[in-house]
Structures are given as structure tokens and as C-alpha cells.
Design a protein around this nucleic acid. Sequence first.
DNA 1: ACCTGAACACCGTTCAAGT
DNA 2: ACCTGAACACCGTTCAAGT
Lengths: 215, 215
Amino acid sequence: MIERALQLADAESLAAVSIRRLASDFHVTPMALYWHVKNKDELLAAMGDDFYDHIEISDLAGRDWFEVLRLVVERLVSSLRRHPASAGLAVARILHSERGQVLTELTLSVLRDAGFSVGRSADVARTALHTAVTLVAGLPGAELDVPADERDAALARKRAEIAALPADRFPCLRVSGDALTGCEDAEDYFEAGTEFFLAGVQAMQRRLPSGVDAP
Amino acid sequence: MIERALQLADAESLAAVSIRRLASDFHVTPMALYWHVKNKDELLAAMGDDFYDHIEISDLAGRDWFEVLRLVVERLVSSLRRHPASAGLAVARILHSERGQVLTELTLSVLRDAGFSVGRSADVARTALHTAVTLVAGLPGAELDVPADERDAALARKRAEIAALPADRFPCLRVSGDALTGCEDAEDYFEAGTEFFLAGVQAMQRRLPSGVDAP
DNA sequence: ACCTGAACACCGTTCAAGT
DNA sequence: ACCTGAACACCGTTCAAGT
């Protein structure tokens, strides 16, 4: 049922996921679902939890802090990519999911070891999750708020609108139209996004008082 | 009407914004609103456009590219902070809003001048917007998905749950509970988030072949 | 243990009609 | 130019009842 909801979100949109719609997919009355789930919020929660249930974390311990951080973002990204239309649900669930808790604890602990203060560690950990979610949910050209069979048309419309802009006032925008609305290589995109985040963290660490832990 | 919708989103939640609810606030039938707005999507679009209508851009030209980039993020953030619960609506509207187009053109043009390729400029510009939205919508402790009068209680519940975690397995999480769920100083938070983004951009620029434009 | 039927309070939206 | 009434197809949810 959760799996079906995640599929439905990707195929049509997260907005298309409803108790009644799922019930009719299962040839059952809407009220039948209330046996399996307390209410719709719990359904969405279970969808968000799913992402953490599919992340490998047991092999992360005992590595360099920076490598752990990179792996955490990479694994978040690849887990979220399984169901991009629901990726946003993961943020609210990380501290309610058992594995989300373990992942957070591990991330915070390597950041503290690297010299970040409690506050900064929390900032970086939060940003790691937000980065992963934003990368996946914001993949240019994915058009996740639109049914799958209308995505090509929606994207074409978007590009036509940019191309129709006056060339004298919007020269950069016009040459960047395709780059803004689409993505040549998704793997490159996710790797670049992850590197961008890691570069920010490194810059932050360089400003730390070296040799001693931050307060 | 748009202003009322934005207020309602902040006071209760974006989900509370409905045609029928707005109509009843104005002591009018739901169908009356359809005279002023084509449908609900157009209402949400107008809410998203509002953010760009309140950004000053005319004084941005003729400055150093890095200063422009900082100002763009800062102004996006302060405009989005006017109505944080609706901040997410801005992403879909930037290229449909007149001032959003101008802002994007300006941003892309300073990035191109700084030596970034078309693709990288698009990446950085997109990330600038996503950063601003994520910072505002993700302000720890804001609890924007919950009615304003339940936010304190929701936050307290969240913190209690973290405090109830087993101390042996989640030591870092427990000491970071408050830092993860709340924010001591919002101004510091937004400034640090902006600096984090800018540090990533700087790291990216340092990798550029110097003296020549990237392909 | 799992599902149904009837009911209620909500949604967005259309269309013809009113002033 | 601006609003209403009635109607339709959707929502989530409760509660008592069925097997």
C-alpha cells in the first residue's frame, strides 16, 4: 500500500495520492484503508519513512569524517531518487524513523569529531538532508508536480516561453533556457550538487580554530 | 485577496488556503472569487509572484559579481521571509514573474562575466533560489505546516521525543536536540546559510581556468 | 482480523442566472 | 462589472455494522 502510494506519486503527482484513490486502485472501499493506517498523515509519514528504510548505514563507521559526510549525502540522494515525487516527505520523518535517527546520530558524531560546534554540526547535518531533498525534488526537467504523461509537454511549453522573451532584454536567460529547465546528465548533476555542498562544509571547517574543539 | 491568502497561509498553513475559506473570510460565495482569479492554480501563482514584486533590483547593476550574488540571495531571503509559509511557491514562478525574469537575467549575466559556463551559471542561479527558499521554509522551529497557535506545542513535543531517546545510542542527537529543532538567532541563521552558499560558489570559481572564459 | 454502508463536513469548478 | 444558486465530482473521516 505504501509502495503503491509512492508509485502513484511518481506516476501522477503527490497531490494525486488520496485515500479514496488508493482504495479504488485496490478495489476496496475508502474506509478499508483505515484498518491499515490511522489517517492520511500516517500514510504520508510511512511514505517518508520508506526512504530511510532503504539506506545502508552499517558500513559507515570508522571512516574519515569527510568521507562519511559525502557517503551520507550520496546515499540520501540515491534513496530519494527511488521516489522523487515524495522526496519532500523525508524531511519531516528523519527523527521519527529508526534508521533516520541512527543516520543523524552518526552524522552529528563525525561532525563533532571534525571540530564543529554543537550548533554548527546541527546546521551542517540539516543542510545535508535539505541538499539531498532539493537536488532530487528539483532535478531540472523532472516536473514532478505534473502527471508523467504531460511532463514532456509541460517542459516544452516552459522552454518556448523562455525562447519567446525579448532578445535585447534577456540575452543570458535565452541562451540558458535549456540549462535552467533541463539536465543533460543526471549523474553529473547529483555529483556536482553533492560537491557543492561539501565545498561549503570544507570552507566552514577551514575557519575553525585548529587543534582545539570549537566551544 | 492575494495578501489575505498569504496571511492565512502564515497564520494557519498553506493547506488552509482554499477558495471556499477565502470566500467565507470575505463574506462572499466561493464562486465570487472566480471573477477575480481563473482558478486555484492562478491564486497560488499570484501568491508566488508576490515575492518578486517586493524585491529591489534596480540598484544591483555595476557591482562586483560576488557582491551581486550575495545581495540577490539576501533580498530573496528577506522577501520570502514576509510570508514564509508560502515561500515554496516562489520557485515555480520565478520565470513567469516579470521581476523574477529580470533578477534571473542579472544573476546569470554576472555569473557569465565571472567566468562560469552557461551550464554552471544556470546551476548556481538555481541553487541561489533553492538556498533562499530552503533557508526560509526550513527555519528550525518555524513549524510552518502547523497552525500558528499550535506551533509551540508541536515544537515542545518534538524536543521531548528527542530527549526521550536512549542516551547510550544517541548521545550526539540528544545534546543537539535544541540546535536541530530551534534557532537561537534567526539573523545569524540566515547570514550563515547565505555564507555557506557563497563559499560553495567561491570554491567552484577557484576551479575555473583563470584568465579565460569557461567553454 | 478485515471490510462495508451511510453520513458529514469539507474541497474545486461549471454554468446559467441575477443586479 | 461583479456576484449568486444549484449542481457535480471530488476529498478525509467517523461510527455502527457486517463476516
